[in-house]
Simulated assay, not measured.
Amino acid sequence: MTRTDYFNDPNAPKANSIGVAVSAFTVNERSELLMIRRTDNDLYALPGGNLELGETLSEALVREVWEETGITVEVTELIGAYSNPRHVIAYDDGEVRQEFSICFRARPTGGELRTSSESKEVHWVPRERIGELNIHPSIRLRIQHGFERRETAFFQ
């Protein structure tokens, strides 16, 4: 399924749903950030996805990172909750979802990089190279907050 992200766009379609999503800010021992290139919109992003019934937020994060990257992680702290109503995601099935994502810091514990049906590329990206990638502004904000190591979680 393809998706189109609209951000501060007055011509964006009106949201007709909301769902809980999680994303992982994961840095390795070389201070490189785990990132994927999504198959549905061709943008680079933090790994993550939707919470499924019966899961905790941490379980969803661990599952999504493993599914998209092949890396196992341990959730260590909350970075922020992102729910900007001016960021909507339109899917080709007619769903238009308002952003609602909870971003966590995670520590890699094992695994090998690999792609999936949701990730056409998976990389450990050096911090100085992140600016070169095509990343949605909402993901850039999460990355910024992750590197800032804020004293309190961000919420919007």
Results as ranks from 00 to 15, higher is better:
3 R>T: 15
4 T>P: 00
5 D>I: 15
6 Y>W: 14
9 D>S: 09
11 N>G: 14
11 N>F: 10
12 A>E: 08
13 P>H: 06
14 K>F: 05
14 K>I: 13
15 A>N: 09
15 A>I: 07
16 N>Y: 07
17 S>F: 14
17 S>Y: 14
19 G>C: 08
23 S>R: 07
24 A>T: 05
25 F>D: 03
28 N>M: 06
30 R>H: 14
31 S>M: 04
32 E>I: 00
34 L>Y: 02
37 R>A: 01
37 R>E: 11
39 T>L: 03
41 N>E: 12
43 L>P: 00
43 L>Q: 12
43 L>R: 13
44 Y>S: 02
45 A>G: 02
45 A>R: 05
46 L>C: 04
46 L>G: 01
49 G>I: 10
49 G>M: 09
50 N>G: 15
51 L>P: 00
51 L>R: 06
52 E>I: 09
52 E>W: 10
54 G>F: 04
55 E>L: 04
56 T>D: 06
59 E>R: 11
59 E>Y: 10
59 E>A: 14
61 L>Q: 05
61 L>M: 11
62 V>Y: 00
65 V>G: 00
66 W>G: 01
70 G>R: 00
70 G>D: 01
70 G>Q: 03
70 G>N: 02
72 T>K: 14
73 V>F: 04
74 E>H: 07
77 E>L: 06
77 E>V: 02
77 E>R: 15
79 I>M: 00
79 I>T: 01
80 G>P: 01
82 Y>E: 01
83 S>W: 12
83 S>M: 14
85 P>H: 06
85 P>Q: 06
87 H>N: 14
87 H>I: 14
89 I>S: 07
90 A>R: 09
92 D>C: 02
95 E>H: 06
96 V>Y: 01
97 R>S: 13
101 S>P: 00
102 I>V: 15
103 C>R: 01
104 F>M: 12
105 R>P: 03
105 R>K: 15
110 G>F: 08
110 G>D: 07
111 G>F: 10
113 L>E: 04
114 R>Y: 07
118 E>T: 10
120 K>Q: 14
123 H>W: 15
123 H>S: 13
124 W>H: 11
128 E>K: 15
133 L>M: 14
133 L>I: 13
135 I>C: 03
136 H>Y: 14
141 L>A: 13
144 Q>V: 05
144 Q>T: 13
145 H>C: 04
145 H>W: 09
146 G>A: 09
147 F>H: 05
147 F>C: 02
155 F>C: 12
